[in-house]
Amino acid sequence: MAPAPDTVLHSEVPSPLDVTDTHASTEASHGAEGGGLPQFEFQHWFGQIVWLVVLFITLYLLISKIFAPRLRGVIDQRASTIATAVETARKVQTEAAGQAEVAKAELAQARADSRATAAAAKTRVTEEANRRGAAEEAKVNARIAKAETAIGKTRDAAMTNVTAIATDTAAAMVKRLTGTTASAAEVAAAVKGAA
């Protein structure tokens, strides 16, 4: 006897309730077997501990023998470079301070030398001007003395002539006014008395 088409379809296709029951039974069987995560099962702990120790030792050896010495070398080299740079900077600073002091002293010396040179030049120029002034004054005084001498000679010559002229003039005036001629001794005495 052939099954009815409705019953065949129902028995071949599982219902959604049947699928849920299948998952629940699978989870129950796994839960009864191991208890969840395999890392927490005691039977796997020995292998995990062995691998943990192997990885720890490997990482320790890598860090202590390769990475740490390289890092320490880089740090030591950096510290050495910094110390050298600081020492060099201190030396340069000390040298610069010394050179600044030397330059300051040289500048002060140059200023003092220039002041001394200026004072010496001023003294030399003043002495030269005084010497030239004295020479010019001596020349002028010599010219004045020469001129005074010439004037004196001219005056003396003129005075000699003046006396003669005055005597002649007085004689001429007496003759003209009085009509008589005066003697030379009388005219000379009159001129001397007037002078």
Rank of each mutant, 00 (worst) to 15 (best):
Q77S: 09
A103W: 02
F42D: 12
P38K: 07
W51C: 05
K139H: 04
A85D: 05
P3W: 05
A118C: 00
E101R: 13
A142D: 01
A121C: 01
I63Y: 14
S114Y: 07
I49N: 03
P69L: 05
A182R: 00
Q93Y: 02
K192D: 15
V191W: 01
E106V: 01
E27K: 14
A145C: 01
Q48K: 08
I165C: 06
G34F: 14
V74N: 04
H23A: 07
K153P: 01
A100W: 01
A182V: 14
D113H: 02
R143D: 01
H10I: 03
A97Y: 03
F67H: 11
W45M: 09
M173Y: 06
A103F: 04
V187F: 02
K91W: 04
S11I: 02
T181L: 09
I144S: 01
G47P: 01
V8R: 08
P5G: 03
Q109A: 10
A79G: 04
L62M: 11
M173K: 07
L107T: 08
A138L: 14
A2K: 10
V92E: 10
A172C: 07
R143G: 00
T7E: 11
A2G: 09
F46A: 14
D76T: 11
A184S: 13
D168F: 06
H30Q: 12
F46R: 15
I82T: 12
D76F: 03
L55M: 12
G193Y: 04
L177V: 13
A83N: 05
A4I: 00
P38G: 03
T167S: 10
A147Y: 04
V54G: 01
S29W: 06
R155E: 09
N161V: 09
A157V: 03
T94D: 14
A135F: 06
G31V: 03
K192T: 15
A142Q: 05
P14L: 11
V187C: 03
G98H: 09
M1N: 08
A171H: 01
I66D: 13
I165E: 13
E137V: 05
